[in-house]
């Protein structure tokens, strides 16, 4: 074709947005940021979690009293300036216990997400990507673990291990890893047949590199959402374990143990249990809002293509 050269020249594309100057790049970054800041749920959730984190980190400076100091003269005191939420039956400041309790709850949430996200992602990705008997074995194992209610499994593990922060984190992580792995596997199954995976084989990438460079990055958005939401369930699980006396041992302040202590006097001093319950509710709602926000904003292109079902 004689017009070949011409056709080729005219084919050099000009984006209407203009050339690739730093200005355009900055505008693209801003647009991406706006997706987050314009999402009310995401902003509320992120604010709540950020405030809770600040509270937990700055607990020694913020808390009005020591969470452990017992004041026998002030048992079950009414709220006052010195004790804004009153004291419990050992004369400890309830507000201070709640503020320090946030440390435990957020630590559990953080570590459980980190551990179950890492392990679940790897296990799920291997199962989905390798297929064959490896996949069948992993899926069978996951199914067995999912047959137990997550909380019961954690309960049994803590009961077997003894109660400490580490064992609570381990137990809850083990209980939640299969959930992340299931989601990961199903997302990887939707990615595996996509042409760019075959293209990676054609280029000469090893399976491991394809998994690390192409499969996992593309599978992350829905998995991150699941992980955020499971941080909420992990906090609930820790509170539940503490409530039953199987969590981090007394006298350490945790939200669950504050509820448990307050339960005995719930008719006369309902504020103790209620305030701890409210703290848990706020943290869980914050994380759920954050998860929903992430689901809506994490790379919309991606979401449309994988069509992955979120929890």
């Amino acid at each position: 074709m004689a017009s070949g050269e011409m056709a080729r020249d005219s084919a050099i594309p000009r984006q209407p947005a203009g050339p690739d100057d730093p200005e355009a790049a900055r505008r693209r970054r801003q647009a991406a940021l706006r997706r987050y800041t314009r999402h009310p749920g995401f902003m509320v959730g992120a604010t709540i979690i950020l405030l809770l984190a600040l509270l937990a980190i700055l607990a020694p400076w913020i808390a009005p009293n020591s969470p452990l100091k017992t004041e026998m003269s002030l048992v079950l005191a009414e709220p006052s300036w010195a004790y804004p939420l009153g004291t419990d039956q050992f004369g400890r400041c309830v507000l201070s216990r709640l503020i320090y309790g946030a440390q435990i709850s957020l630590q559990v949430g953080f570590w459980v997400v980190l551990i179950s996200l890492t392990c679940g992602t790897l296990i799920g990705a291997l199962a989905g990507f390798l297929g064959g008997w490896i996949e069948r074995a992993i899926v069978a194992l996951i199914d067995i673990m999912l047959a137990f209610p997550g909380f019961l499994l954690a309960l049994a593990l803590v009961a077997a291990q003894g109660s400490s922060l580490t064992s609570v984190i381990t137990a809850v992580s083990i209980a939640y890893t299969p959930r992340v792995a299931t989601v990961m596997r199903s997302v990887v199954l939707t990615i595996r047949p996509r042409p760019f995976i075959e293209a990676s084989h054609a280029i000469g990438l090893t399976k491991l590199r394809i998994l690390l460079r192409h499969v996992i990055p593309n599978a992350m958005p829905p998995v991150i959402v699941v992980a955020t939401v499971s941080a909420a369930t992990a906090i609930l699980a820790e509170a539940g374990l503490s409530f039953l006396g199987l969590g981090v041992q007394p006298p350490t302040a945790t939200w669950g143990s504050v509820i448990a202590n307050g339960q005995a006097v719930i008719t006369t001093r309902p504020l103790i249990s209620l305030s701890a319950g409210l703290s848990i509710a706020v943290a869980v709602i914050g994380l759920n809002l954050l998860g929903d926000g992430l689901r809506d904003t994490l790379d919309p292109q991606m979401r449309r293509q994988t069509g992955a079902k979120m929890l």
Binding site: P195, F196, A199, H214, Q301, Q305
Partner: peptide, 8 residues
């Protein structure tokens, strides 16, 4: 559309 990794 499909043969390029959308995240790269």
């Amino acid at each position: 559309y499909g043969s390029l990794d959308p995240r790269m």
